[in-house]
Design a protein around this nucleic acid. Sequence first.
DNA 1: AAGTGGTCTAGACCACGTC
DNA 2: ACGTGGTCTAGACCACTTT
Lengths: 231, 231
Amino acid sequence: MTPEFNSWQSVQDEVLRRIHSRTWPPGAAIPNEAELAQEFGCARATVNRALQALADAGLLERKRRAGTRVALHPIRKATLSIPILRTEIEQRGATYGYGLIDRRLEVPPNPIRTRLGTGGAELLHTRALHTANGRPFVIEDRWVNLATVPAFAEVDLERFSANEWLVSHAPFTHGDIFFGADPCSITEAEALGCAVGAAVFTVERTTWNATAPITWVRLVYAPGYRMQTDL
Amino acid sequence: MTPEFNSWQSVQDEVLRRIHSRTWPPGAAIPNEAELAQEFGCARATVNRALQALADAGLLERKRRAGTRVALHPIRKATLSIPILRTEIEQRGATYGYGLIDRRLEVPPNPIRTRLGTGGAELLHTRALHTANGRPFVIEDRWVNLATVPAFAEVDLERFSANEWLVSHAPFTHGDIFFGADPCSITEAEALGCAVGAAVFTVERTTWNATAPITWVRLVYAPGYRMQTDL
DNA sequence: AAGTGGTCTAGACCACGTC
DNA sequence: ACGTGGTCTAGACCACTTT
Protein backbone atom coordinates (compact mmCIF):
# COMPACT_ATOMS: atom_id res chain seq x y z
CA MET A 1 0.00 0.00 0.00
CA THR A 2 0.98 3.63 -0.37
CA PRO A 3 3.07 4.99 2.46
CA GLU A 4 1.48 7.85 4.32
CA PHE A 5 2.83 11.35 4.58
CA ASN A 6 1.07 12.82 7.53
CA SER A 7 3.69 15.34 8.63
CA TRP A 8 5.07 18.22 6.63
CA GLN A 9 8.58 16.94 7.29
CA SER A 10 7.85 13.59 5.72
CA VAL A 11 6.37 15.36 2.73
CA GLN A 12 9.50 17.48 2.52
CA ASP A 13 11.68 14.37 2.66
CA GLU A 14 9.77 12.74 -0.14
CA VAL A 15 9.97 15.83 -2.32
CA LEU A 16 13.68 16.08 -1.61
CA ARG A 17 14.08 12.45 -2.59
CA ARG A 18 12.39 13.08 -5.91
CA ILE A 19 14.59 16.08 -6.58
CA HIS A 20 17.80 14.26 -5.71
CA SER A 21 16.81 11.18 -7.67
CA ARG A 22 15.96 13.43 -10.61
CA THR A 23 12.44 12.13 -10.77
CA TRP A 24 11.83 15.85 -10.90
CA PRO A 25 14.91 17.18 -12.72
CA PRO A 26 16.18 20.77 -12.42
CA GLY A 27 13.88 23.19 -14.18
CA ALA A 28 10.91 20.84 -14.25
CA ALA A 29 7.47 21.84 -13.01
CA ILE A 30 6.08 19.68 -10.24
CA PRO A 31 2.40 18.90 -9.61
CA ASN A 32 0.41 21.58 -7.87
CA GLU A 33 -0.36 21.54 -4.19
CA ALA A 34 -3.82 20.06 -4.53
CA GLU A 35 -2.57 17.13 -6.59
CA LEU A 36 0.30 16.43 -4.23
CA ALA A 37 -2.02 16.61 -1.25
CA GLN A 38 -4.22 13.98 -2.81
CA GLU A 39 -1.29 11.77 -3.74
CA PHE A 40 0.25 12.05 -0.28
CA GLY A 41 -3.07 11.66 1.47
CA CYS A 42 -2.76 14.82 3.53
CA ALA A 43 -4.18 18.32 3.60
CA ARG A 44 -3.04 20.94 1.15
CA ALA A 45 -1.77 23.10 4.00
CA THR A 46 0.67 20.36 4.90
CA VAL A 47 2.03 20.22 1.37
CA ASN A 48 2.19 23.99 1.35
CA ARG A 49 4.29 24.05 4.49
CA ALA A 50 6.74 21.54 3.07
CA LEU A 51 7.10 23.24 -0.30
CA GLN A 52 7.47 26.63 1.30
CA ALA A 53 10.35 25.39 3.42
CA LEU A 54 12.06 24.03 0.32
CA ALA A 55 11.49 27.29 -1.52
CA ASP A 56 13.06 29.17 1.40
CA ALA A 57 16.02 26.84 1.14
CA GLY A 58 16.34 27.79 -2.52
CA LEU A 59 15.59 24.35 -3.96
CA LEU A 60 12.22 25.24 -5.42
CA GLU A 61 10.93 28.31 -7.20
CA ARG A 62 7.30 29.12 -6.72
CA LYS A 63 5.10 31.59 -8.54
CA ARG A 64 1.38 32.05 -8.40
CA ARG A 65 -0.39 30.70 -11.37
CA ALA A 66 2.91 29.53 -12.88
CA GLY A 67 3.30 26.75 -10.34
CA THR A 68 6.34 25.28 -8.65
CA ARG A 69 9.59 24.35 -10.38
CA VAL A 70 12.81 22.71 -9.28
CA ALA A 71 15.48 25.41 -9.16
CA LEU A 72 18.03 25.26 -11.96
CA HIS A 73 20.82 26.62 -9.79
CA PRO A 74 19.95 25.82 -6.21
CA ILE A 75 21.30 28.85 -4.42
CA ARG A 76 22.35 27.66 -1.03
CA LYS A 77 21.62 30.04 1.78
CA ALA A 78 23.99 29.85 4.69
CA THR A 79 22.74 31.43 7.88
CA LEU A 80 25.33 33.01 10.10
CA SER A 81 24.35 33.64 13.65
CA ILE A 82 25.96 36.77 14.92
CA PRO A 83 26.15 36.45 18.68
CA ILE A 84 27.60 39.00 21.05
CA LEU A 85 31.37 38.71 21.25
CA ARG A 86 31.35 37.38 24.79
CA THR A 87 29.20 34.44 23.73
CA GLU A 88 31.24 33.82 20.62
CA ILE A 89 34.38 33.49 22.72
CA GLU A 90 32.78 31.45 25.48
CA GLN A 91 31.32 29.06 22.93
CA ARG A 92 34.87 28.28 21.90
CA GLY A 93 35.48 27.16 25.45
CA ALA A 94 37.71 30.11 26.23
CA THR A 95 37.63 32.62 29.06
CA TYR A 96 36.29 35.96 27.95
CA GLY A 97 38.08 39.18 28.75
CA TYR A 98 37.44 42.77 27.82
CA GLY A 99 39.27 46.06 28.00
CA LEU A 100 38.46 49.57 26.85
CA ILE A 101 41.19 51.18 24.80
CA ASP A 102 39.75 54.54 24.00
CA ARG A 103 36.57 56.59 24.22
CA ARG A 104 36.11 60.07 22.83
CA LEU A 105 33.60 62.34 21.19
CA GLU A 106 34.66 63.32 17.70
CA VAL A 107 33.61 63.84 14.12
CA PRO A 108 34.04 60.62 12.15
CA PRO A 109 36.10 60.41 8.98
CA ASN A 110 34.26 60.90 5.73
CA PRO A 111 33.47 57.30 4.72
CA ILE A 112 31.82 56.57 8.05
CA ARG A 113 30.02 59.89 8.16
CA THR A 114 28.62 59.15 4.73
CA ARG A 115 27.51 55.64 5.58
CA LEU A 116 25.70 56.78 8.67
CA GLY A 117 24.43 59.99 7.16
CA THR A 118 25.15 62.00 10.30
CA GLY A 119 26.69 64.96 8.52
CA GLY A 120 29.18 66.98 10.54
CA ALA A 121 27.86 65.81 13.93
CA GLU A 122 30.16 64.43 16.59
CA LEU A 123 29.74 60.76 17.43
CA LEU A 124 31.03 58.73 20.33
CA HIS A 125 34.08 56.82 19.14
CA THR A 126 35.03 53.78 21.20
CA ARG A 127 37.77 51.24 20.77
CA ALA A 128 38.00 48.07 22.82
CA LEU A 129 39.80 44.76 22.85
CA HIS A 130 38.06 41.45 23.53
CA THR A 131 40.31 38.61 24.64
CA ALA A 132 40.04 34.83 24.75
CA ASN A 133 42.08 33.18 27.52
CA GLY A 134 43.86 36.48 27.94
CA ARG A 135 45.01 36.60 24.32
CA PRO A 136 43.80 39.28 21.90
CA PHE A 137 40.82 37.98 19.97
CA VAL A 138 39.14 40.91 18.27
CA ILE A 139 39.28 44.70 18.17
CA GLU A 140 35.96 46.53 18.29
CA ASP A 141 36.21 49.96 16.69
CA ARG A 142 32.88 51.68 16.97
CA TRP A 143 31.05 54.95 16.29
CA VAL A 144 27.79 55.48 18.14
CA ASN A 145 25.21 58.09 17.21
CA LEU A 146 24.22 59.62 20.55
CA ALA A 147 21.38 61.48 18.88
CA THR A 148 19.65 58.11 18.43
CA VAL A 149 20.87 56.40 21.61
CA PRO A 150 21.42 59.17 24.18
CA ALA A 151 21.55 56.72 27.08
CA PHE A 152 24.75 55.28 25.68
CA ALA A 153 26.64 58.36 26.83
CA GLU A 154 26.17 57.28 30.45
CA VAL A 155 27.30 53.67 30.05
CA ASP A 156 30.40 52.71 32.01
CA LEU A 157 32.42 51.28 29.15
CA GLU A 158 35.22 50.19 31.48
CA ARG A 159 32.88 47.53 32.78
CA PHE A 160 30.39 46.81 30.00
CA SER A 161 31.32 46.43 26.38
CA ALA A 162 29.56 48.65 23.88
CA ASN A 163 28.71 45.52 21.95
CA GLU A 164 26.78 43.97 24.77
CA TRP A 165 25.02 47.10 25.94
CA LEU A 166 23.81 48.06 22.49
CA VAL A 167 22.52 44.58 21.71
CA SER A 168 20.19 44.57 24.69
CA HIS A 169 19.31 48.26 24.83
CA ALA A 170 19.26 49.55 21.29
CA PRO A 171 17.22 47.25 19.08
CA PHE A 172 17.72 47.88 15.40
CA THR A 173 15.28 47.37 12.62
CA HIS A 174 17.78 46.69 9.87
CA GLY A 175 21.41 46.91 8.94
CA ASP A 176 24.09 45.63 6.66
CA ILE A 177 27.28 43.76 7.13
CA PHE A 178 30.47 43.34 5.13
CA PHE A 179 33.12 40.66 5.51
CA GLY A 180 36.58 41.06 4.13
CA ALA A 181 40.30 40.52 4.52
CA ASP A 182 42.64 43.41 5.17
CA PRO A 183 46.27 43.96 6.02
CA CYS A 184 46.67 44.84 9.66
CA SER A 185 47.34 48.53 10.36
CA ILE A 186 49.97 49.73 12.81
CA THR A 187 47.54 50.51 15.61
CA GLU A 188 45.64 47.27 15.01
CA ALA A 189 48.85 45.25 15.06
CA GLU A 190 49.76 46.86 18.35
CA ALA A 191 46.45 45.96 19.98
CA LEU A 192 46.35 42.45 18.57
CA GLY A 193 50.01 41.74 19.14
CA CYS A 194 50.65 40.65 15.58
CA ALA A 195 52.77 41.82 12.68
CA VAL A 196 51.89 44.94 10.73
CA GLY A 197 50.37 43.93 7.41
CA ALA A 198 49.30 40.49 8.61
CA ALA A 199 46.09 39.24 6.96
CA VAL A 200 43.16 39.83 9.30
CA PHE A 201 39.50 38.97 8.95
CA THR A 202 37.29 42.03 9.26
CA VAL A 203 33.60 42.66 9.71
CA GLU A 204 31.93 46.01 9.20
CA ARG A 205 28.37 46.43 10.38
CA THR A 206 26.03 49.38 10.18
CA THR A 207 22.66 49.40 11.93
CA TRP A 208 19.62 51.64 11.87
CA ASN A 209 16.44 52.01 13.82
CA ALA A 210 13.90 52.80 11.14
CA THR A 211 15.73 55.69 9.42
CA ALA A 212 17.83 56.76 12.39
CA PRO A 213 21.44 55.53 12.22
CA ILE A 214 22.56 53.84 15.43
CA THR A 215 26.09 52.66 15.06
CA TRP A 216 28.88 51.63 12.74
CA VAL A 217 31.35 49.06 13.94
CA ARG A 218 34.46 47.46 12.55
CA LEU A 219 35.67 44.21 14.04
CA VAL A 220 39.25 43.16 13.38
CA TYR A 221 39.95 39.57 14.33
CA ALA A 222 43.37 38.27 15.24
CA PRO A 223 45.18 36.41 12.44
CA GLY A 224 44.03 32.81 12.01
CA TYR A 225 40.41 33.48 12.91
CA ARG A 226 37.81 31.65 10.82
CA MET A 227 34.10 32.11 10.75
CA GLN A 228 32.13 28.90 10.29
CA THR A 229 28.65 27.78 9.45
CA ASP A 230 26.85 24.70 8.20
CA LEU A 231 24.98 24.25 4.97
CA MET B 1 -12.53 50.32 18.66
CA THR B 2 -9.81 47.73 18.68
CA PRO B 3 -7.76 47.59 15.52
CA GLU B 4 -7.89 44.25 13.76
CA PHE B 5 -4.99 41.96 13.09
CA ASN B 6 -6.20 39.66 10.39
CA SER B 7 -2.89 38.80 8.77
CA TRP B 8 0.11 37.16 10.36
CA GLN B 9 2.27 40.03 9.17
CA SER B 10 0.20 42.58 11.02
CA VAL B 11 0.37 40.44 14.13
CA GLN B 12 4.13 40.27 13.71
CA ASP B 13 4.34 44.04 13.35
CA GLU B 14 2.35 44.57 16.51
CA VAL B 15 4.49 42.14 18.49
CA LEU B 16 7.62 43.81 17.14
CA ARG B 17 6.25 47.16 18.22
CA ARG B 18 5.72 45.90 21.74
CA ILE B 19 9.23 44.51 21.89
CA HIS B 20 10.84 47.68 20.58
CA SER B 21 8.74 49.89 22.82
CA ARG B 22 9.67 47.66 25.76
CA THR B 23 6.06 46.95 26.55
CA TRP B 24 7.49 43.45 26.61
CA PRO B 25 11.07 43.99 27.81
CA PRO B 26 13.94 41.56 27.14
CA GLY B 27 13.55 38.40 29.15
CA ALA B 28 9.85 38.87 29.82
CA ALA B 29 7.28 36.19 29.13
CA ILE B 30 4.54 37.17 26.74
CA PRO B 31 0.95 35.91 26.78
CA ASN B 32 0.38 32.50 25.26
CA GLU B 33 -0.91 31.98 21.75
CA ALA B 34 -4.52 31.45 22.75
CA GLU B 35 -4.64 34.70 24.71
CA LEU B 36 -3.00 36.68 21.95
CA ALA B 37 -5.35 35.20 19.39
CA GLN B 38 -8.29 36.37 21.43
CA GLU B 39 -6.81 39.83 21.95
CA PHE B 40 -5.96 40.24 18.28
CA GLY B 41 -9.23 38.79 17.13
CA CYS B 42 -7.70 36.13 14.91
CA ALA B 43 -7.11 32.40 14.87
CA ARG B 44 -4.37 30.87 16.97
CA ALA B 45 -2.67 29.55 13.84
CA THR B 46 -2.18 33.13 12.69
CA VAL B 47 -0.53 34.11 15.94
CA ASN B 48 1.57 30.96 15.74
CA ARG B 49 2.83 31.84 12.31
CA ALA B 50 3.83 35.35 13.43
CA LEU B 51 5.58 34.22 16.61
CA GLN B 52 7.36 31.43 14.80
CA ALA B 53 8.78 33.89 12.29
CA LEU B 54 10.04 36.08 15.13
CA ALA B 55 11.55 33.07 16.87
CA ASP B 56 13.35 32.15 13.65
CA ALA B 57 14.69 35.67 13.53
CA GLY B 58 16.05 35.18 17.04
CA LEU B 59 13.89 37.81 18.74
CA LEU B 60 11.75 35.38 20.71
CA GLU B 61 12.56 32.18 22.50
CA ARG B 62 9.85 29.58 22.62
CA LYS B 63 9.61 26.42 24.65
CA ARG B 64 6.75 24.06 25.12
CA ARG B 65 5.03 24.42 28.40
CA ALA B 66 7.41 27.25 29.39
CA GLY B 67 5.86 29.67 26.94
CA THR B 68 7.37 32.45 24.86
CA ARG B 69 9.91 35.02 26.06
CA VAL B 70 11.58 38.04 24.52
CA ALA B 71 15.20 37.08 23.83
CA LEU B 72 17.74 38.64 26.18
CA HIS B 73 20.42 38.77 23.52
CA PRO B 74 18.71 38.81 20.17
CA ILE B 75 21.11 36.78 18.05
CA ARG B 76 20.88 38.18 14.60
CA LYS B 77 20.99 35.68 11.82
CA ALA B 78 22.42 36.88 8.59
CA THR B 79 21.63 34.77 5.58
CA LEU B 80 24.26 34.60 2.88
CA SER B 81 23.20 33.40 -0.49
CA ILE B 82 25.94 31.42 -2.12
CA PRO B 83 25.38 31.64 -5.86
CA ILE B 84 27.53 30.06 -8.50
CA LEU B 85 30.56 32.20 -9.28
CA ARG B 86 29.34 33.19 -12.72
CA THR B 87 26.21 34.70 -11.23
CA GLU B 88 28.10 36.40 -8.45
CA ILE B 89 30.28 38.16 -10.99
CA GLU B 90 27.48 38.99 -13.39
CA GLN B 91 25.41 40.43 -10.55
CA ARG B 92 28.19 42.94 -10.07
CA GLY B 93 27.61 44.06 -13.63
CA ALA B 94 30.89 42.61 -14.84
CA THR B 95 31.65 40.26 -17.71
CA TYR B 96 32.36 36.76 -16.55
CA GLY B 97 35.37 34.83 -17.72
CA TYR B 98 36.77 31.45 -16.86
CA GLY B 99 39.96 29.53 -17.44
CA LEU B 100 41.20 26.14 -16.33
CA ILE B 101 44.66 26.22 -14.80
CA ASP B 102 45.25 22.62 -13.94
CA ARG B 103 43.56 19.24 -13.74
CA ARG B 104 45.13 16.06 -12.43
CA LEU B 105 44.38 12.92 -10.51
CA GLU B 106 46.33 12.78 -7.27
CA VAL B 107 46.24 11.96 -3.59
CA PRO B 108 45.29 15.05 -1.59
CA PRO B 109 47.43 16.42 1.24
CA ASN B 110 46.62 15.20 4.70
CA PRO B 111 44.31 17.96 5.97
CA ILE B 112 42.01 17.60 2.97
CA ARG B 113 42.14 13.83 3.01
CA THR B 114 41.10 13.92 6.65
CA ARG B 115 38.27 16.37 6.12
CA LEU B 116 36.81 14.33 3.30
CA GLY B 117 37.60 10.97 4.86
CA THR B 118 38.73 9.47 1.58
CA GLY B 119 41.84 7.78 3.00
CA GLY B 120 44.62 7.22 0.52
CA ALA B 121 42.40 7.38 -2.56
CA GLU B 122 43.22 9.60 -5.50
CA LEU B 123 40.89 12.53 -6.12
CA LEU B 124 40.51 14.80 -9.10
CA HIS B 125 42.32 18.03 -8.33
CA THR B 126 41.29 21.03 -10.40
CA ARG B 127 42.41 24.64 -10.30
CA ALA B 128 40.70 27.38 -12.22
CA LEU B 129 40.54 31.14 -12.40
CA HIS B 130 37.31 33.10 -12.67
CA THR B 131 37.62 36.63 -14.00
CA ALA B 132 35.47 39.76 -13.91
CA ASN B 133 35.94 42.08 -16.89
CA GLY B 134 39.06 40.11 -17.71
CA ARG B 135 40.65 40.76 -14.31
CA PRO B 136 41.34 37.93 -11.86
CA PHE B 137 38.45 37.63 -9.43
CA VAL B 138 38.76 34.34 -7.62
CA ILE B 139 40.80 31.15 -7.70
CA GLU B 140 38.87 27.90 -7.39
CA ASP B 141 41.05 25.14 -5.98
CA ARG B 142 39.04 21.96 -5.80
CA TRP B 143 39.25 18.23 -5.00
CA VAL B 144 36.46 16.06 -6.32
CA ASN B 145 35.74 12.56 -5.10
CA LEU B 146 35.14 10.58 -8.31
CA ALA B 147 33.92 7.64 -6.28
CA THR B 148 30.83 9.68 -5.45
CA VAL B 149 30.51 11.63 -8.71
CA PRO B 150 31.98 9.39 -11.43
CA ALA B 151 30.39 11.45 -14.21
CA PHE B 152 32.60 14.38 -13.27
CA ALA B 153 35.59 12.60 -14.82
CA GLU B 154 34.08 13.15 -18.28
CA VAL B 155 33.30 16.84 -17.92
CA ASP B 156 35.14 19.13 -20.30
CA LEU B 157 36.57 21.52 -17.73
CA GLU B 158 38.03 23.76 -20.42
CA ARG B 159 34.50 24.81 -21.24
CA PHE B 160 32.46 24.31 -18.09
CA SER B 161 33.63 25.28 -14.63
CA ALA B 162 33.63 22.58 -11.98
CA ASN B 163 31.63 24.93 -9.81
CA GLU B 164 28.77 25.18 -12.25
CA TRP B 165 28.67 21.55 -13.24
CA LEU B 166 28.64 20.28 -9.69
CA VAL B 167 25.91 22.66 -8.59
CA SER B 168 23.49 21.34 -11.17
CA HIS B 169 24.57 17.71 -11.31
CA ALA B 170 25.72 16.73 -7.85
CA PRO B 171 23.18 17.80 -5.26
CA PHE B 172 24.51 17.68 -1.73
CA THR B 173 22.60 17.01 1.42
CA HIS B 174 24.82 18.99 3.76
CA GLY B 175 28.16 20.67 4.09
CA ASP B 176 30.13 23.21 6.00
CA ILE B 177 31.83 26.42 5.09
CA PHE B 178 34.64 28.47 6.59
CA PHE B 179 35.48 32.09 5.92
CA GLY B 180 38.85 33.54 6.73
CA ALA B 181 41.68 35.86 5.81
CA ASP B 182 45.01 34.53 4.67
CA PRO B 183 48.24 35.84 3.25
CA CYS B 184 48.46 35.12 -0.44
CA SER B 185 50.78 32.24 -1.38
CA ILE B 186 53.24 32.42 -4.25
CA THR B 187 51.13 30.42 -6.67
CA GLU B 188 47.98 32.27 -5.66
CA ALA B 189 49.69 35.63 -6.12
CA GLU B 190 50.77 34.55 -9.57
CA ALA B 191 47.25 33.59 -10.63
CA LEU B 192 45.60 36.63 -9.09
CA GLY B 193 48.28 39.07 -10.17
CA CYS B 194 48.82 40.48 -6.71
CA ALA B 195 51.67 40.67 -4.23
CA VAL B 196 52.79 37.62 -2.30
CA GLY B 197 51.50 37.86 1.27
CA ALA B 198 48.67 40.26 0.38
CA ALA B 199 45.57 39.79 2.55
CA VAL B 200 43.02 37.70 0.66
CA PHE B 201 39.52 36.61 1.60
CA THR B 202 39.14 32.84 1.52
CA VAL B 203 36.24 30.44 1.61
CA GLU B 204 36.59 26.72 2.24
CA ARG B 205 33.60 24.53 1.60
CA THR B 206 33.12 20.79 2.05
CA THR B 207 30.00 19.01 0.85
CA TRP B 208 28.56 15.55 1.31
CA ASN B 209 25.74 13.52 -0.15
CA ALA B 210 24.41 11.70 2.88
CA THR B 211 27.68 10.21 4.17
CA ALA B 212 29.55 10.20 0.85
CA PRO B 213 32.00 13.10 0.52
CA ILE B 214 31.60 14.96 -2.76
CA THR B 215 34.07 17.79 -2.91
CA TRP B 216 36.29 20.17 -1.02
CA VAL B 217 36.90 23.59 -2.49
CA ARG B 218 38.96 26.59 -1.51
CA LEU B 219 38.13 29.94 -3.05
CA VAL B 220 40.73 32.68 -2.91
CA TYR B 221 39.37 36.09 -3.81
CA ALA B 222 41.49 38.90 -5.17
CA PRO B 223 42.52 41.54 -2.61
CA GLY B 224 39.81 44.09 -1.86
CA TYR B 225 36.92 41.65 -2.21
CA ARG B 226 34.12 41.99 0.32
CA MET B 227 31.19 39.74 0.95
CA GLN B 228 27.99 41.55 1.85
CA THR B 229 24.59 40.82 3.26
CA ASP B 230 21.71 42.61 4.90
CA LEU B 231 20.40 42.17 8.39
C1' DA C 1 -10.62 34.39 -17.38
C1' DA C 2 -8.68 30.96 -14.91
C1' DG C 3 -5.50 28.49 -12.24
C1' DT C 4 -1.97 28.73 -8.89
C1' DG C 5 0.08 29.63 -4.48
C1' DG C 6 -0.82 32.45 -0.05
C1' DT C 7 -3.33 32.75 3.81
C1' DC C 8 -7.10 32.56 7.42
C1' DT C 9 -10.33 29.91 10.32
C1' DA C 10 -12.12 26.74 13.82
C1' DG C 11 -11.35 22.79 15.80
C1' DA C 12 -8.64 19.00 17.15
C1' DC C 13 -4.85 16.06 18.73
C1' DC C 14 -0.19 15.47 20.02
C1' DA C 15 4.73 16.02 21.92
C1' DC C 16 7.35 17.88 24.96
C1' DG C 17 9.17 19.90 29.09
C1' DT C 18 8.30 21.92 33.21
C1' DC C 19 6.06 21.76 37.42
C1' DA D 1 0.18 15.74 35.44
C1' DC D 2 -0.77 19.46 32.76
C1' DG D 3 -0.16 23.60 30.07
C1' DT D 4 2.30 25.17 26.21
C1' DG D 5 3.69 25.32 21.55
C1' DG D 6 3.67 22.27 17.19
C1' DT D 7 1.05 20.57 13.82
C1' DC D 8 -2.85 18.59 10.93
C1' DT D 9 -7.43 19.04 8.77
C1' DA D 10 -11.16 20.66 5.76
C1' DG D 11 -12.89 24.33 3.89
C1' DA D 12 -12.83 28.91 2.25
C1' DC D 13 -11.46 33.26 0.16
C1' DC D 14 -8.02 36.09 -1.88
C1' DA D 15 -3.98 37.93 -4.75
C1' DC D 16 -1.32 37.47 -8.26
C1' DT D 17 0.14 36.31 -12.84
C1' DT D 18 -0.10 34.27 -16.87
C1' DT D 19 -2.88 32.92 -20.72
